[in-house]
Each structure stands twice: as structure tokens, then as C-alpha cells.
Design a protein around this nucleic acid. Structure first.
Lengths: 188, 188
DNA sequence: GTACACGAGTCAGTCACTGACATCAACTAG
DNA sequence: CTAGTTGATGTCAGTGACTGACTCGTGTAC
């Protein structure tokens, strides 16, 4: 279908991750990324609307997984069960990619612009989850609180997992955090 | 101490708010803002590190107010009391500026870059509150959950207040939201 | 075999943002 | 009163993210 090497999108993402983690986000120009990937700068922006987006292009998939997992639960499921299956769904996607996610997290942590974007992504995820909970006839304030607590649990568990030498699974980390907060906060 | 009209900072902020709300964030250049404020583009960037920051320069004050309000509470105060005084402190700062805040919220809502920044600001506030709660010997996961719920309450109450025709006070809105979530979630 | 859709290249331009240096009122030291 | 310092601004010349308009081969549909 094209006169060029296929997979430009993947090559751009890999080149970006490598260059960013070696030299820092601000020290790398889009032109350099494009060159390493064997395309032009203009092509980079055909694949990703901004320089930051090369890091966040898969977030819509995650939303789909989360919402799908919740949707598959029976109507009588408790708030805690819902949070748990959503988290487990996340863990299944993340678990095999620990090393990439670790590098990614390091780069994000060191660049304010990327932290902003990460927050926006999490906000979008939370909104989607809230809407799904509201569809299950949970009143919106309670849905927002549940989703908010869920995000906190995710953040705590993910941070622990990614900096983890003992290599507990993300799933274990999530269960620990969930236990912790749930007993503290009567999440029923 | 200067050969120029004083108050450049305020003039820039007002010019930006006006222009953004009339024409949209992306349609206004920094050069235009500076021109309306009677300075050069370079001077804009001496006052605000980015175009977005002209909207968020007072967030550090807010952190101070919140943390101060919490710090003044007795050690035996419940989580709910802490959230309540923090919210009340916020309400006192915001209440007199409803109209400006309303316009501001509209602009922010319509521009992804500004929503990102708003989220980052809220995240910074939440982190500061969490640290303060941890200083009060509340375990960090519980502190994070409390602060998270507090942010949810703030968001719900603020959104209701700002789009409010009946003109209930922000303070009332906060109390309503707090009641709502607290009974739902056993916030002790 | 012709048309056309598509994924990329090319080129010229806008605008956010930065560094280096000049200016000039007010203030300060002597 | 003069000389020097300070601090907020102006001026200017960049860099780099991002966009619009256009071109160019290649595969596919007809």
C-alpha cells in the first residue's frame, strides 16, 4: 500500500522512547526522532498531534478495557468488586510490559509537560469509569468518589510495582493497596 | 523605581482573560495580549513562564490557605472536619470572585491545554494536603484517599456554584456535597 | 489501463519561547 | 551634587513545535 517501509508509527514510538530516556525530553527534537525512525518531521505530526502524544497514544485502549471489565460484572456487584475487576483488567495489560513502562514512567516523572498529560489521561479514564458506574444506577457523587479512590489505589500500586526490586506482580500490589484503603474507608 | 506604568502583571492577566473569553485561547497570540496591556511580548514572558500560566499564577496562594487552615485544627479533629475547614477556607477566597471565576472556568473548559494545567494544579494542591495530613500522623494511603475525596467534593461543588442561577453560596454548595459523599462513604 | 485513494515528502510560514544586550528612571553612597 | 547600582522594560535575533497547501509514487478497484 505504500512505497515506504511499513510500521512508521511503531518506529517513531520506539525512537522517541529511546531518545527521551537517553537525552531527556527537552533535549530531543521531533526532527531527530523522525530521522531515527527514517521519516520526515512532517510525518511524525501525521501520526501524533503533538510531541507529547507519542507517549500516550494507547490510552484509549485502556479506557476500553476498563469500561469493558466493569460492564461484564453482574448488577449486584459491590463497589469494591467493581474497582477490583477494573484494576485486574489494567494489571493484565500492564504486567507483561514492566520494563517499557518503567522507562516510560521515569521519563514522565522528570518532565512537567508529560506529567500534565498523564494527569489528563487519568482524568479521562476516571470520567469514563464514572459514566459507566452511573449507567449502573450508582448516584454520580458516589460514583465519582469510587472512581477517585480507584485512581488513588492505581497510582499507589503502580508506583510501588514499577520501582519494585522484589518483583511482586502488579496484581498483588493492587490487591494490597485495595485492602489497605478499603478497610480504612469502608468501601463496602 | 521604574519609568513605566506600574501593574503590568495585573494588566496582562486582565487583557488575557478578556481576549481569551472573547476569541478563544488558540486564536489569541501572546503578542496581542502584550499589546493590549501596553508592553512587549518579551515582558509577558518575564511575568509568566508560558501562555497558560497567565491563568494560573495564584495557585500557590491557594495551597498556602488550605494547608494553613488544616494546620490550625486541633489534633483530634476528624477527617471530615479537616476536609470541611479546608473547603471553607477555599470558599472564602473564591466567593467574592464568582464572575471572574465563571469566565475563567468557561475558558479552561474549552481548551485542553488549560484543562491539563488545571489538573496539574489540583494535583499539586492534593499533594500538599496529603503531606499535611501525613504530618498529623494519618497513614499516607488514608490521607491520599481523604484528599482525593476532598478534591471530588470541591469539583462537584465548584461546578454547581459557578453555573448556579439560584446563587447559593459556594460554602453552601460545599456543605451539600460534603454531606452527600460523607454519608455515602463513611468519612468519619 | 485508467482513476483514485493513501501514505509519505517538500516547502513556506506562524507562534511560543529564549538568550544577550541596551536603556533609563529611581535609588544609594560618597 | 555626582557616580554608580538596580530593576523593570525594550530590542533583536534566534530555535523548535506545529500547520497548510501541494506534490509524488504505489497499490487497488473498476
Amino acid at each position: 500500500m505504500g512505497r515506504w517501509e511499513a510500521g512508521a508509527n511503531l518506529r517513531l514510538r520506539e525512537a522517541a522512547l529511546n531518545l527521551f530516556s537517553q537525552n531527556g525530553f527537552d533535549q530531543v527534537t521531533v526532527e531527530q526522532i523522525a530521522e531515527v525512525a527514517g521519516v520526515t518531521e512532517r510525518t511524525f505530526f501525521r501520526h501524533f498531534p503533538t510531541k507529547e502524544d507519542v507517549f500516550f497514544s494507547d490510552s484509549s485502549l485502556i479506557i476500553g478495557d476498563l469500561v469493558g471489565a466493569i460492564r461484564n460484572q453482574p448488577v449486584e456487584a459491590s463497589a469494591r468488586q467493581l474497582v477490583q475487576v477494573a484494576m485486574t483488567a489494567l494489571a493484565e495489560v500492564f504486567e507483561p510490559n514492566r520494563e517499557t513502562l518503567r522507562i516510560r514512567a521515569q521519563v514522565i516523572a522528570s518532565v512537567p509537560a508529560l506529567r500534565e498529560r498523564e494527569l489528563l489521561k487519568q482524568h479521562a479514564i476516571a470520567s469514563a469509569v464514572i459514566d459507566e458506574l452511573v449507567d449502573r444506577r450508582i448516584p454520580r457523587p458516589r460514583a465519582a468518589a469510587i472512581a477517585g479512590v480507584g485512581m488513588v489505589i492505581y497510582q499507589v500500586a503502580f508506583a510501588a510495582w514499577v520501582t519494585d526490586n522484589a518483583r511482586k506482580s502488579l496484581r498483588t500490589r493492587i490487591e494490597q493497596a485495595l485492602d489497605h484503603v478499603a478497610t480504612d474507608l469502608a468501601l463496602g
